[in-house]
């Protein structure tokens, strides 16, 4: 009864509440389906970053001989953030094409779908973050007020990945080989960004290039916040020339989000008939 009364009094609020419920359902179902029926269940989500970590630590930990304190925390932070980026964009990629039946049978804003699956990726990321925190504690790194900075940094990364996801899912409705391009891109990103090696390993021109990528800026900022200043904690400010340089990748992230939103919304009215 209350919801009906609300509909009459505040139709817009009731509508928004309804759309948020759809958002929640799609995100939770996606998450449930991913792990339901598998023996390890949610443990799978943790197994992936740990497997990456084990291999990269054994192989590259020695190659780069960073000798830096807390390198394991540094490395694991990078892996977990990278897997979030891949998970969020990968889920968004097929999101529209996979939900054709929903789009053709229910009237609701299409944008809810990619946003939902981005939230699913965020849930998985949240679970993985617990591993990072556990690792940090074990290495004697404890949270301080500075860790609060992680929240806006993750918000920036969320908008950036959502922007990429919106572009990918719009393209995928038309071109099915976007998957191959995305796989290649994700694979290259793992090697082209300082996840397993320190920033200083790159020549200085390449450092400037990678820091235009918001992912690298967020990655290095989060590491800086968690591990503190070390010889491998280059940030956008130090590479791109001061605080103003820090704004470059942030602007790229916001521009990516706006661009994704615009092209998605332009195509949205025709999704029900095309997917």
């Amino acid at each position: 009864m209350t919801s009906e009364a609300a509909t009459v009094e505040r139709p817009h609020l009731a509508r928004l509440a309804y759309h948020l419920r759809i958002l929640r359902v799609i995100a939770e179902v996606e998450f449930k389906l991913k792990y339901a029926g598998s023996v390890l269940g949610y443990a799978w989500s943790i197994a992936k970053p740990l497997a990456y970590f084990a291999v990269l630590w054994v192989v590259f930990g020695r190659v780069f001989k960073t000798g830096v304190e807390n390198f394991p925390v540094y490395l694991l932070t990078g892996i977990v953030l990278y897997l979030y980026l891949v998970d969020a964009t990968g889920l968004a990629l097929t999101a529209m094409a996979n939900r054709g039946s929903l789009l053709r049978r229910l009237a609701f804003p299409a944008l809810i779908i990619p946003v939902s699956v981005s939230l699913t990726a965020l849930i998985t990321f949240g679970i993985n973050s617990l591993v990072v925190v556990g690792f940090a504690f074990a290495s004697g790194v404890f949270p301080d007020l500075g860790w609060l900075l992680i929240v806006p940094l993750l918000a920036e990364l969320f908008l950036f990945t959502l922007g990429i996801g919106l572009v990918l899912t719009t393209l995928f409705v038309r071109f099915r080989d976007v998957v191959q391009l995305w796989e290649l891109g994700a694979q290259l990103l793992l090697f082209a960004t300082p996840i397993m090696y320190p920033v200083s390993f790159l020549p200085s021109w390449a450092q400037k290039v990678v820091f235009v990528n918001p992912f690298v800026q967020v990655l290095q900022d989060v590491r800086y916040v968690i591990v503190g200043p070390t010889e491998i904690s280059a940030t956008a400010s130090s590479v791109l020339g001061g605080p103003a340089g820090h704004l470059i990748p942030i602007a790229v992230a916001l521009a990516t989000f706006v661009f994704g939103l615009v092209i998605f919304q332009r195509e949205a009215p025709t999704f029900p008939e095309r997917v």
């Binding site: 759809i22 359902v25 179902v29 389906l33 339901a36 029926g37 929903l102 049978r105 229910l106 609701f108």
Partner: peptide, 19 residues
């Protein structure tokens, strides 16, 4: 709408009714 064969009737009632 939104029915998923891999989930229980209980879950599906929640999914469908929410949608």
């Amino acid at each position: 709408v939104g029915f998923n064969l891999e989930l229980s009737a209980r879950d599906n009632v929640w999914i469908n009714a929410s949608l």
